[in-house]
Each structure stands twice: as structure tokens, then as C-alpha cells.
Amino acid sequence: MLLSMTGFGEARRHDQKLQVSVEVKSVNNRHLKVTVRCPDAALGIENEIERVVRGAIGRGTVNVNLRITRVDGVTSSQLDVERLRSYWREISAIAAEFKAEPPKDLTQFIDLPGVINDSSDALVSSDQWPLVEAAVREALAKLDEFRQREGIAMRDEMAGLCKEVQGRVHVVAERAPEVVTEYRAKIKQRVSDLLRESEVVIGDADLIREVSIFADRCDITEELARLRSHIDQFLKLLDATPSSGRQLEFLCQEFIRELNTIGSKANDITIAHAIVEGKAAVEKIREIVQNVE
């Protein structure tokens, strides 16, 4: 199933000690990049969270925001008295230097760096990790549902665009033989006009040789066959499991390569227009593929 790299999921779990809230957001990226934000006292489980995320997601930039609150009445923060005293001494010394009175309200010092610290005890112990893991996995499951819904819409859109490309390929395939036939009639008429008042005679062998050279130079049979094969493979990958974004990107490059070759070979305005329309559809496909895992 096709998966979008863009999604959002959240989950909440709690027990008698902790309440855990997890948000997971993902956007497109050529590789997998995981960023975990969690309380300082829970940094010990950051690697475990990243391991779980990497096991569920293959590509994209994933941001995990973890919030943990104690519900057992035990505070996870404490006042650093020594740091507060240090700030007070420095402020008092500066006030004395400028012959001013130091501040009397100590609450102004609470927001200074280091005055309030998380408790030295780990907020999440080893026996509480299963609670956090369950919340992370639930958020990832909701993220996956979001990505699947977007993937279905993207799959339908790209399938429709592939049908447009197939339609342009059909136009080119039908028109190609007519180009050679029209060239033969055109060159025959041109030679007849030039030699109308002379006694020079151009044999059929000369005309056939010239037309054969033109037909060989404009032959796009191989390019059409490869392009049809690429389109068939692309349509199969849209329903493949797991999601194959990298392969789809490669096939888009091959679409453009074959269309460019056909356009440069086929000396015909109808084919040129069909190629331009086909390339426009492929560019729309490429934009969508950029967000496929």
C-alpha cells in the first residue's frame, strides 16, 4: 500500500504515577531523520523511542514530542538553593557598587537559568517504560492511518495521470507510421516539382533509400516499448507493499528520458504536442512521488 510521508498522530496513556502524552509529526525527506523532544529527566529513554520509530517508519523527517506529568503528587522539580544564593550575592554586590538597594522580591529569581531543576531521580524508570512505549506505538499507529489515507488519495491521483500518459503514448504510436508515409509523399512531390522541366529521372530505388534513412532516423519503436513497460511497472508499484517511493522516483526519471528521446526523434508537430502533454502529466506525478515513502 502506498504511504504518504506526511502525517500526524497523538496518544495519551496514564497509570497511578504518570500521565504520558505523545505527538508524532512527519514530513517528506529522502532519508529517515528522527527527532525526539522529551523532558530532561526522561532523556534516558530517548534512544528507545527513536528505536521504536525507526522500526515503524522507513523514510521522512519524524518529530516526536513527549510530555510526561506526575499524577502521584510527587514533584519532579526542586529549587537549587545554592544557585539562588549565588545569584543573590552577585546582585547584591552590583547593587552595593552602584549604591542601590538589592531587590526584595526573590520570586524574580525563579525564572533565572538553573534555579528550578528537574529532580535528579529519573522521571521514567525501567518499570515505567512500557507505559511510554505503549503511548508511542499508539501515536505511530494513528500516524500510519493518516499516512494510509493520504496514500490512497495520492495513488488514485497518480493512476489517473498515468492513464493520461498512456493516452499520449497511444497518440504517438498511431501517428508514427503516418509520419513516414507523409514524408515519402512529400519528398516525391518535391523532387517531381524540381525536376519537372529537366530530363533527369529519379528511380524508385533512390526514393526508397531516402525514405528508409528517414524512417530509421525517426524510429521510436524501442522507446515506445520501454515507456509502456515503465508505465505498467509504475501502476503495479502503486499497489505494492511495502510503499516503494524510491522506485517510483526512478521510473519518473525514465518516463522523462524516453519522452525526451521520442520528442527529439519524431519530426512531427502532432507527436511533439503529445510529448509536451505527456511530460506535463509526468511532472505532476513527480511532485506527488516526492511525498511517497
Rank of each mutant, 00 (worst) to 15 (best):
L2E: 07
S4N: 15
A11K: 09
R13A: 09
N29T: 07
L32E: 13
K33N: 11
T35F: 07
N47C: 02
R51W: 01
G58L: 06
L66D: 03
R67G: 05
R70P: 05
R70K: 10
V71M: 02
D80V: 11
V81H: 08
R85T: 04
R89H: 10
R89L: 10
I94G: 01
I94D: 10
E101V: 12
T107F: 03
F109W: 04
P113G: 01
G114V: 13
D121Y: 09
P130K: 07
P130G: 02
A134M: 09
E145Q: 12
R149A: 12
M154A: 01
K163Q: 15
V171G: 02
R175M: 04
R190L: 03
E197I: 02
E199H: 10
A205K: 11
R209E: 10
L224E: 10
L224G: 03
A225K: 09
L227E: 03
H230P: 06
H230C: 08
G245P: 01
L248D: 02
F250G: 00
C252N: 13
E254V: 09
R257K: 11
E258D: 12
G263F: 05
I269S: 14
I271C: 01
A272Q: 09
A272M: 06
V276I: 14
E277D: 11
G278Y: 13
K284N: 07
V289Q: 04
Q290Y: 00
E293V: 07
